[in-house]
Write a protein that binds this DNA or RNA. Structure first.
Lengths: 334, 334
DNA sequence: CTGTTAGCGCGTTCAG
DNA sequence: CTGAACGCGCTAACAG
C-alpha cells in the first residue's frame, strides 16, 4: 500500500507538505504542488480515509437512518431511492455513508445510540421519516444535539438540525384539486373518502390540512380515515366506505394501490388519487393521479446539508419541489 | 469521548490489558477481566472502530456491490433485500458494510477500483450478480486476488473467492414442472415460450439448462427468447409469440409480470411462471408460479463468508435452498 | 512557503 | 499475567 510517506519521498518534500496539497491548503507554492501531484499520479496514491479520519477527527461520515418495512408490506422503493441518492452524492463529495435501519435501533436507548454512532465515528445523521411517537429514543438523541442531523420529512429545525421536505399541504391540495377536476365522477357529486397517513404524523397532518382546505373551498363532503400508510388498511377502509363515496384520495401511493385493489375486488369503479409518485403505482392497473417526489434528489440535498452542518453552519429548512402526475401502467403520462 | 485509556485508569490496569479483554485474548485473569468489564460498563465505553482498524490493519469492512436499476425498470426489491440481510448480519458480527452501486464503478479501471477500495480500507467484497461481459474491470479486480470476494449468483471459486447461489438449474426444472403439471392449459398442448435472462449470463444459462432438460423429458416444444431480465422486453416478446403458445415461463418475476401485462393487453389468457419470489409478483393481478429465494438470508451468509475469507480460510461454493411458490395478489399461497 | 514534532485511539510486541 | 514502548497513516500545530 502506497502511503503519504512514499509520495513525499518521490516528490522530495515533507509529509506535511503532501498533506497540505491533499487538503487544498493555501500555503503551498504552485510548483511544489505540481510536483506533489505528479508524484501522487505516478504512484497511484489514494489517501487512506481511515487514517485521515482518525487524525483529523473529522470522518465525514454520515449515517443514513432508514425505516424499512415498517409501514410497507410491499416494496421498499422509497428507502432505496433515498439510499441511491445519498450514496452517489456522498461519493462525489468525498463523504462516507453508512446505512442503518431504524429497526436495529429500536431497542436502544438514546445513550446507547449515541455511543453506537460515536463508536462508528459518525458526525451527522440523515433521518428519514422520523416519528415523534414511534422513535422516542432516536428523537431524543437528535434533540440532544450530540450529532448534526438532517431530517427528511419531519420538522424540527435548530442550531444543528435541518429539515428537508416538500410542501405537503400544498401538494395534497393541488393534486386533489386537479384529480377531482379531471375525474368525470366529480360531475355527479362530491363525496370524498380521504385515507390519511398516521394519526399524529407531521407529514400526514400537513397533507390532511391541504385536503381539508380544498374540501372547504370546493364544498366537498369529506370522510377522513387513517390508513397508517398501510396497503392492507387502505384496502379495508375502501371496502367499508367506498360504495357510498364518489372518489378516494390517499396520502400515499401504497394506500392508493390498496384502495384500487379493493375496488377491483368489489367490482365497482371510483377514481383514486395517490401521493409519492412511486414506480409501484405503475402496477396498479388503472390510471391514477399522484404527487411526484424526487427522492434521490432529496437525499442528495440531505447529504450536502449534512456537510454544511458539519462545517459549522446552522440548521435550516429546505423545501423541495413536487409535481403533479398521472400514472398508468409503467408509463408516466404527465 | 471516553477512550480505552480512561477505562484502564478506572479499572487500575494497563491499557493493553483492557485491549486484551476487549479482543477476548486468553491471557487475562478472570478477576481482572471482571474489573475491566465493570469499568467499561460504568463509563459506557465503546471502542472507536476507526482507531481500531487503523492500528490492527483489520477494518472488518466489506463492500457490498449492488447492481441497481440496470436490468429493472421497475423496482429494486432484490438489491434492497440483499442490503437488509447483509447490514443486519454485519452488525451482529461487528463488521462494517459500505454499499457501492455498480454504476459508480463502471467508469473505473480495475486498478482504480482497487485503489478506491483500498483507500476505503475494504478487506472483502460481496458482489451481487457479477456479469463477466458487462463488468470487465470488476471481474478483473476480483480475479487479481487483491480482495477477498464473495460472489452472489456468479461462479468463480478460488483461494480467496467464494460463490453463493441456489441451484438454478434444478429450481427452474422443478418450478416449470410443477407449473405445467398444475396449469390446466397443459392438458391441451405443449408449446412453451421460455423467456430467458441474458444471453451469456451464468445464472441465465443454468436456468435455461433446467428448462431444456424438462422440455426433453416432457417432450415440450420450447421456444427460447432472451428478455435480458427486462419487463419491457418480456412484454414485447409475449406480444409477439404468446398467441401461438400455451404457456409462458420466464427466468425472472419481473419478466413474468411483463408477460402478464402483455397478455392482459391482448386480452388472452396463458398461464405464466416466474422466478425469484419477489413481493412485486403480488401486484401482477393473477396467480403465478415462481421460485422463492431468501435474498436476505443469502446476503447474511455472504457476510459470514466474507468474514471467513478474511480470517484466511479458502474460498468455496455454497448452495442456498429454494422453494416453489404460488403467489396471488399479496398473498403467498404455498 | 516548508520541514519538524506531536499526537489521534488503538493493537501489538516484548521484557518484566 | 502485566505494562511500557512503538507504530498504523495522517493532520495539526509550531518552528525555521
Amino acid at each position: 500500500m502506497v502511503s503519504i510517506r512514499d509520495v513525499a519521498k518521490e516528490a522530495g518534500v515533507a509529509i506535511s507538505t503532501v498533506s497540505k496539497v491533499l487538503n487544498n491548503y493555501p500555503n503551498v507554492r504552485g510548483e511544489t504542488k505540481e510536483r506533489v501531484n505528479r508524484a501522487i499520479e505516478q504512484l497511484g496514491f489514494v489517501p487512506n480515509s481511515i487514517a485521515s479520519a482518525l487524525s483529523s477527527k473529522r470522518s465525514g461520515r454520515v449515517a443514513l437512518v432508514l425505516d424499512v418495512n415498517r409501514n410497507a408490506q410491499a416494496v421498499d422503493e422509497i428507502p432505496m431511492q433515498y439510499m441511491i441518492g445519498a450514496i452517489n452524492r456522498a461519493k462525489e463529495l468525498g463523504m462516507d455513508i453508512i446505512t442503518v435501519f431504524a429497526a436495529m435501533l429500536s431497542d436502544m436507548s438514546a445513550e446507547e445510540m449515541t455511543r453506537y454512532f460515536q463508536s462508528q465515528s459518525v458526525e451527522a445523521l440523515i433521518v428519514c421519516s422520523l416519528s415523534r411517537t414511534e422513535d422516542e429514543a432516536l428523537c431524543k438523541m437528535v434533540k440532544s444535539g450530540n450529532f448534526k442531523t438532517v431530517l427528511i420529512n419531519a420538522p424540527g429545525v435548530d442550531e444543528n438540525t435541518s429539515s428537508i421536505h416538500i410542501d405537503n399541504q400544498k401538494a395534497q391540495y393541488e393534486v386533489a384539486k386537479t384529480f377531482l377536476t379531471e375525474s368525470t365522477a366529480f360531475c355527479t357529486s362530491k363525496r370524498i373518502l380521504y385515507i390519511a397517513g398516521k394519526k399524529e404524523g407531521y407529514v400526514s397532518g400537513e397533507r390532511l390540512k391541504g385536503m381539508q382546505k380544498l374540501a372547504q373551498e370546493m364544498e366537498l363532503s369529506l370522510l377522513v380515515r387513517v390508513g397508517n400508510f398501510s396497503e392492507l388498511e387502505a384496502r379495508k377502509l375502501t371496502m367499508q366506505y367506498a360504495p357510498h363515496k364518489d372518489a378516494i384520495i390517499c396520502a400515499s401511493d401504497l394506500m392508493a394501490i390498496g384502495a384500487m385493489k379493493a375496488l377491483i375486488d368489489m367490482d365497482i369503479y371510483r377514481p383514486v388519487c395517490g401521493f409519492d409518485g412511486t414506480n409501484l403505482m405503475g402496477y396498479a392497473g388503472k390510471q391514477m393521479h399522484t404527487v411526484g417526489q424526487d427522492f434521490k434528489r432529496t437525499a442528495a440535498c440531505a447529504v450536502e446539508e449534512a456537510g454544511r452542518l458539519i462545517g459549522g453552519e446552522a440548521g435550516r429548512e429546505i423545501i423541495m419541489p413536487h409535481k403533479l402526475m398521472r400514472i398508468k401502467y409503467l408509463d408516466v403520462i404527465s
